[in-house]
């Protein structure tokens, strides 16, 4: 299932003094099963863009095609099938822990599937499975979501979206406000989901995450897509013009190059692979 943006424009509060063109001529395609990162500084339209993916926003002009669903202003018939789209594309908002409201974690995760017509008992089974998926054990099922720590709440909220079994998972800064351990575990979980075949779209500010996990990077600036590339392509050029930093790993690799170590840049994704590469070169 591919996702395609065709000349998408979006304007907030048109024809008022608050008018604001948030998206301008967005064109790109995301392949099934890929891991795409969306970067750009605050207010550049990332959050607006991802809300087009499951029909929360309808483009002011242009179209967003997700599989056989066409999200466009003209297409009123399609809006009836909005539920199918919402089931296909799971959207995890920034600070998603704010969406928890049920008395127990189990009920909260089971809430989503029930909205799509799954029976209560089946939904509870799904809740149990998904909770495991986000790395929490069964003892959490009966707890109140409001007694959990920030990181745990975030995971329960993500589980609430995962319980819909979407093919595409969109996460808006899922690591914001988490401690380093929580961040690492969450990303490992997202990577696992990607390996199991889900398409992942991740909005983030953390360039190191992009470097380590992404297959593709979409760079946005002021409502426009300014660059689409793989991380190694992107960071091989000077990224300061997109107001991005060079990732730590890339910096270290560059330093190694300067010292005469001939490393294979394509094999370096994170600290482990960097050390492996250095060891390999040294042992030659």
């Amino acid at each position: 299932m591919s996702i395609k943006f065709n000349q998408v424009y979006y304007t907030y509060s048109p024809k008022t003094p608050f008018e604001n063109e948030a998206l301008k001529n967005i064109n790109f395609e995301i392949k099934e099963g890929s891991f795409t990162c969306l970067v750009g500084h605050t207010g550049c339209g990332k959050s607006t863009l991802i809300q087009h993916l499951n029909g929360l926003l309808v483009p002011s002009s242009g179209e967003v095609v997700v599989d056989d669903y066409v999200n466009t202003k003209k297409n009123r018939k399609m809006r009836r099938k909005l539920r199918d789209l919402r089931k296909k594309v799971g959207l995890v908002f920034q600070f998603s822990e704010n969406q928890l409201f049920e008395e127990t974690v189990e009920d909260d995760i089971a809430f989503g599937p029930q909205n799509f017509g799954v029976k209560k008992e089946d939904a509870k089974l799904i809740a149990k499975e998904t909770l495991k998926l986000v790395g929490l054990d069964e003892s959490f099922l009966k707890k109140s979501p409001f007694d959990l720590s920030g990181g745990e709440k975030r995971r329960v909220a993500i589980a609430g979206v995962l319980a819909l079994k979407p093919d595409v998972l969109v996460l808006d800064e899922p690591t914001a406000g988490l401690d380093p351990k929580g961040t690492k575990e969450l990303l490992a979980m997202v990577k696992n989901l990607n390996d199991s075949g889900k398409t992942i779209i991740l909005v983030t500010h953390d360039i190191n995450i992009v470097y380590e996990y992404a297959d593709n990077v979409i760079v946005m600036d002021n409502g426009e897509v300014v660059k689409i590339a793989t991380p190694s392509e992107l960071f091989s050029e000077n990224v300061e013009k997109y107001s991005l930093e060079t990732p730590m790993i890339q910096k270290v690799t560059n330093m190694c190059f300067a010292k005469g170590l001939k490393l294979d840049i394509n094999k370096i994704k994170n600290l482990e692979s960097l050390v492996d590469e250095i060891a390999k070169v040294r042992s030659k």
């Binding site: 539920r83 908002f93 704010n98």
Partner: peptide, 13 residues
Amino acid sequence: ERIMKAQSSRGVD
């Protein structure tokens, strides 16, 4: 608006 969108994503109508 934010919460409504978040819950809509979970299938709330």
